[in-house]
């Protein structure tokens, strides 16, 4: 079993390996979060527009 420090050192390639994984994490998480938030926002604005429209119209 490797030690934890050894694991994080990645045989001297820590910068390259961990920045690749970090970059992937950022891109993938953004990929998931952004459309979910957009969907919630869309439904909310559409809902308020429809209800607002109803109140104004006779």
């Amino acid at each position: 079993m490797k030690s934890l420090t050894e694991f994080f050192a990645m045989g001297g390639y820590a910068t390259y390996v961990w920045s690749s994984y970090a970059l992937a994490a950022v891109v993938l998480i953004w990929n998931v979060v952004q459309p979910l938030r957009r969907e919630r926002q869309l439904l909310r604005t559409m809902g308020s527009r429809v209800q607002g429209g109803r109140r104004v119209a006779p």
């Binding site: 990645m10 045989g11 001297g12 390639y13 390259y16 390996v17 690749s20 994984y21 970059l23 992937a24």
Partner: peptide, 15 residues
């Protein structure tokens, strides 16, 4: 680890 590239080859799992 890879016999030539050592630990750096783990980037393959993202790339």
């Amino acid at each position: 680890a890879d016999y030539q590239q050592g630990e750096s080859f783990r980037i393959i799992y993202i790339h």
